[in-house]
Design a binder for these strands. Structure first.
Lengths: 326, 326
DNA sequence: ATAATTTACTAAAGCGATTTAGTAAAAAAC
DNA sequence: GTTTTTTACTAAATCGCTTTAGTAAATTAT
């Protein structure tokens, strides 16, 4: 990768017309202790700000004998949540090549996300794997810009111009929807949030089969009308869980009265009965692929092809076959 | 912290009777390229092995201009799983002091865990926060030994001699059990795994109330006998979920026929109805506390007191009041 | 037998910081 | 009015490694 040659403290010192020592002392808040004049400090500060200088933390680590890093080790055995699986995949692949993860949990808002990205990059990493906050479109430009300096790979989100490892949720959505059709269902409802690839796929399949689905945003709104449908496509397994629960108290039997299909294959689905139909997203594999892409990029320089995974169907026992053609 | 003065490549070179350059070349697999004699290589290798030498990766990063680090950024907004919450807490606290996380998901077996620990530490971190694999007692000695070199803090596990941040699950177990008693239940069953603090607490409370609970390891085994009990203490919310499901098909009404209490306050419980009683474990706070302890330790040197959190009760609506005293 | 090449190394500069030891000029003390 | 102290800096060593340039001895070529 091209190296945009980050400024060093030495550069800053030169620009500010002071010694490296003075700059270092200022940087470490020891200006007072070393009798730096206020004017000098201001000059250094201004220069740092103007060049948005960030000290190399490896150099600091070695010179000061403090790494400013804390190892965090958690047990990924039982609590196999979505992200933990992905992280495990990334780690496994990176470790094989002697790379490591500097980790950050970004938070809901795009602003905080941007902060985190900046933060990471100034810490001197060789690349960035990121699962952007959905809808943080404002950060996309920044990421693309960043990609000129170091490889950036997105996970489960595609950004024009960046490498990505992703589950093809449009395909997954089609798979789920077509499964309902194949089992003979024609009166089908949708339950959950809109505007995602999987939902777009659902509506496309419905259109192709001349079915006009009704849309419900939440379980409470849906259940009273469930009699009008033979099947429901749930945005995620969370909706399935809620629906199962409400259905039990509402006397709706699954799959006898209502067929249900979910999405994500969350770990709790194994505890539901009948086992819900759901669509598996690749998790660990996604992590591995993201790591592979970034490593290739670091070594080769050229942008490798995206890595697309096609989610597979778990049929479960929550979708009844309706006598039609068989 | 005392610095056990790790050997440097220079030391190795001296011991092996070769130049620093030769040692470096060997280390980087460029022996062939630089015409190092086989005998010399063997000598270097032996010396490295004997002293179990690990290169300082910060030094490498700065000299080679490759950090061998990959930033990983994930979105912690919606999928608020147990560990992600904890990680977010750690990160927040560390970041405030300019520290960062070098992250690793350890894997089920104690052997792989030990590997991960070694791995982390040789990467030049200032401390280690770890959630050990339960039952990895064999690694405890190693951790204690490590603690002499750099601060080690455990999360949700207590090891004699090490600092810990933990949820007092004995107290949590008592809280849950006493809640059942308080609501008038006397015929109580236990469902799930044994040998944990929360279960010990349960049995203690039962004993104190002269109740002899029956123990069931899984839902399938329990349900046929559920009529014999008015309430069941579930090891975790996962059992609750399964039980809710089976109960619905088995015609057992919760809480009318059976009161249920779980543990952990997993996020999916909010989707169940009636909302199950459960015990909240502090997650983010745990992470923050672990980070605080380790930072204190790094600065102060002395071992700060453990940080104990007392899990709180969510009453939910799954535990019926039984007419007794009121 | 001498020049050219190969083999098997080493010395020393450099990476980007921190830190110790030192210095010139101004201010305060005697 | 000299000496001491304080102020305001800087030079140079250092951290642990990589890498470039160089060298002496052994081998091969002519």
């Amino acid at each position: 990768m091209e190296n945009k040659k980050r400024l060093t403290l030495k550069d800053i010192a030169a620009k500010a017309g002071v010694s490296l020592t003075a700059a270092s002392m200022f940087l470490n808040g020891k200006a007072k202790k070393y009798n730096l004049a206020d004017a000098t400090c201001e000059r250094i500060e201004q220069t740092m700000r103007d060049n948005n200088f960030v000290p190399n933390f490896h150099a600091r680590a070695i010179a000061s004998k403090q790494t400013m890093l804390i190892g965090v080790l958690i047990y990924g055995g039982i609590e196999t949540s979505f992200w933990l699986n992905i992280l495990a995949g990334i780690e496994e692949q990176l470790a094989a090549k002697n790379y490591h993860m500097l980790f950050s949990v970004s938070h809901s808002s795009p602003e905080r996300e941007l902060e985190s990205i900046r933060f990471m990059c100034t810490k001197g990493v060789d690349g960035l794997i990121i699962a952007p906050v959905s809808g943080s479109v404002n950060n996309f430009d920044y990421l693309c810009e960043l990609d000129k300096t170091m490889p950036v790979v997105t996970m489960n989100t595609r950004i024009e111009g960046l490498s990505a490892a992703y589950n093809d949720n449009y395909a997954g959505g089609r798979t789920a929807s077509e499964f309902l059709i194949r089992r003979g269902h024609r009166k089908i409802a949708f339950l959950g949030g809109l505007g995602f690839n999987r939902t777009r796929a659902f509506f496309d399949v419905m259109l192709e089969n001349q079915i006009e689905p009704e849309v419900f945003l939440n379980v409470a709104g849906f259940l009273p009308h469930s009699g009008r449908f033979t099947a429901v496509f749930c945005f995620s397994d969370y909706q399935v869980l809620e629906l199962y629960n409400e259905a039990a108290s509402g006397g709706v039997k699954i799959p006898e009265n209502l067929s249900v299909i979910g999405y994500d294959n969350m770990n709790f689905t194994s505890l539901l009965s009948p086992r819900p139909a759901t669509v598996e997203q690749y998790k660990k594999e996604l992590g591995v692929a993201a790591a592979e892409i970034i490593l290739e990029r670091i070594n080769g320089g050229i942008r490798p092809a995206d890595r697309k995974f096609t989610p597979t169907l778990h049929e479960g026992a929550s979708v009844k076959k309706i006598g039609f053609l068989g």
